[in-house]
């Protein structure tokens, strides 16, 4: 067992700091843990792989992409957060989740020393969207909860619709 008092300040700093990617959507900046993102692609290079997904179950998803024989759902972050419509130029492909996220741009990579819990006064959907808040320089950013982009229920509905569409496409072929 390690006694906290025996840890050097350097060790404590090392344990706390977390690399994050700062990205923006409709002039709002968000932070996401760097290790939650597997790949960042431009929408131009991604366009060839993305397939239009016509469905009315989850409005923020309009495309899918197949990677390693798994279907990823492409979430428009602007629609997810209820922000004004923009033209996303980048896609963040998340790690360990079948989600790719359309964003406007990457601001930079940086490290945050701690994630402050979201104040309890916030009681809406943002409790699922964010892990908490980061205070960096003189700015406060929400830190994204990657599992918040699509709920288990939304995944189920999308998977069901996708399976039906695949079946219909197979019959037509």
């Amino acid at each position: 067992m390690k006694i906290a008092a025996q840890e050097s300040p350097k060790q404590r700093r090392g344990r706390r700091s977390e690399p994050v990617i700062l990205f923006s959507v409709a002039h709002q900046t968000f932070a996401i843990a760097a290790d939650a993102v597997q790949e960042i692609r431009s929408t131009d290079s991604f366009a060839g792989a993305a397939v239009e997904f016509k469905q009315s179950e989850v409005a923020k998803v309009r495309h899918t992409v197949e990677r390693a024989r798994r279907i990823y759902y492409v979430v428009n972050a602007g629609v997810h957060f209820g922000l004004p419509t923009t033209r996303p130029t980048l896609v963040l492909i998340l790690r360990q989740l079948r989600v790719a996220v359309l964003v406007d741009r990457i601001e930079r990579m940086t490290e945050i020393s701690m994630v402050h819990p979201l104040p309890r006064g916030f009681s809406g959907a943002e409790r699922h969207w964010y892990r908490g808040l980061a205070y960096l320089g003189d700015r406060v950013f929400p830190v994204i909860q990657p599992t918040g982009f699509l709920t288990a229920d939304e995944f189920q509905r999308l998977d069901r619709t996708h399976a039906v569409q695949e079946e219909l496409a197979g019959v037509r072929a």
């Binding site: 916030f122 809406g124 959907a125 943002e126 406060v140």
Partner: peptide, 10 residues
């Protein structure tokens, strides 16, 4: 500082 959320009055 503001950011997207869905809580009334905040």
């Amino acid at each position: 500082h503001n950011f997207p959320h869905a809580t009334p009055l905040v």
